[in-house]
Simulated scan of single mutants.
Amino acid sequence: MDKVGVYAVPVSVVCILLFCLARKVPVFDAFTEGARQGLKTTISILPTLVGLITGVTMLQASGALDLMANALAPLMRAVGLPPTVAPLVLMKPVSGSGSTAVLTQILQQCGADSFAGRVAAVLAGSTETVFYCIAVYYGSVQVRKTRHTLPAALFGDLTACIVAPLAIHFLFYR
C-alpha cells in the first residue's frame, strides 16, 4: 500500500500533462498564469490572515482562552462534553494550527483512549475553522457581507459539540 502513495503524485502530474497535450493547452503558459493569479490572491488575503493570526496568538498568550474555557465548563458538562475539551471548542473555529496544538495537549494530558481524548479527536475532525475559512475564502473574492455563513457554520460546530460526546459514549461506553 505504501507503493501507491509514492506514485500517486507523479502519476497525477503525468496524467494532467497528457490531458493538456491532448487538448493542445500551452501547459507552461497555463501554469504561469495560474501561479500569477495565486500570488494575487495570496497578497489580497494577507492582511486578513495577519490580523487573524495576531488575534489567535494574543488570545492564547493573554490567558483569555483559559478564562473563557473555565467559564464555559458548567455549560459543557451539561451538554456532556468533558471540560478539558473547552479550549479546543473555543480554538477550533479560529485556528487550525492552534486547535491542533490544543488537541495535542488534551491527548497528552488525558490519553488518546480516554473519553476526553476521543471526544477531542472527534471534535477536531468534525468541526471547521470557521473564521479562518470565512476570512480566506470571502476575502479572496472581496465579499464583505457573509450573510448566513457565520451563523450556519457556528451552528454546525455546535451540533458537533453535542453529537461528539453522544457518539463516543454510544460507540465505546455502552
Rank of each mutant, 00 (worst) to 15 (best):
M1V: 06
M1N: 11
D2G: 15
D2M: 12
K3V: 15
V4A: 15
G5I: 10
V6Y: 06
V9A: 11
V11F: 01
V11S: 08
S12K: 05
S12F: 05
V13P: 05
C15E: 03
I16H: 02
L17R: 06
C20D: 10
L21M: 08
R23I: 09
K24V: 04
V25G: 05
P26D: 08
V27C: 12
A30I: 07
F31M: 15
T32D: 00
E33A: 15
G34E: 08
R36E: 11
Q37R: 15
L39Y: 13
K40D: 14
T41H: 01
T41L: 13
L46Q: 10
P47R: 12
P47I: 12
T48Q: 15
L49K: 08
L52I: 14
I53Q: 13
G55M: 07
V56C: 02
V56K: 00
T57Y: 14
T57A: 13
T57S: 14
M58I: 13
Q60C: 02
A61S: 14
A61H: 07
S62W: 04
L65V: 06
D66S: 10
A69T: 08
A69Y: 06
A71C: 03
M76N: 12
R77F: 08
V79I: 15
V79P: 14
G80S: 03
P82H: 09
P83K: 04
V85A: 10
A86V: 09
P87H: 10
V89G: 10
L90D: 07
M91I: 06
P93K: 02
V94R: 00
V94A: 14
S95T: 04
S95V: 07
S95W: 04
G98K: 00
S99M: 02
A101P: 05
A101H: 05
A101D: 05
Q105I: 04
I106A: 09
L107A: 12
Q108V: 03
Q109I: 10
S114E: 10
S114C: 11
G117T: 09
R118T: 06
R118W: 02
A121F: 08
A121S: 15
V122H: 02
S126T: 12
T127G: 08
T129C: 01
V130N: 06
F131S: 08
F131H: 07
Y132A: 11
C133Y: 00
I134D: 00
A135M: 04
A135K: 03
V136G: 11
V136N: 06
V136W: 02
V136A: 14
G139T: 11
G139D: 03
S140T: 07
V141Y: 13
Q142I: 11
Q142P: 01
V143G: 03
K145P: 01
K145T: 10
T146G: 10
R147S: 07
H148Y: 15
P151F: 13
A152N: 03
A152Y: 12
A153I: 01
A153C: 04
L154D: 01
L158T: 11
L158H: 06
L158I: 14
L158Y: 11
T159S: 08
T159H: 11
C161P: 05
I162Y: 06
V163F: 02
P165Q: 09
A167Y: 13
A167P: 11
A167Q: 06
A167N: 03
H169K: 13
F170R: 15
L171N: 03
Y173L: 13
Y173G: 07
R174A: 09
R174H: 14
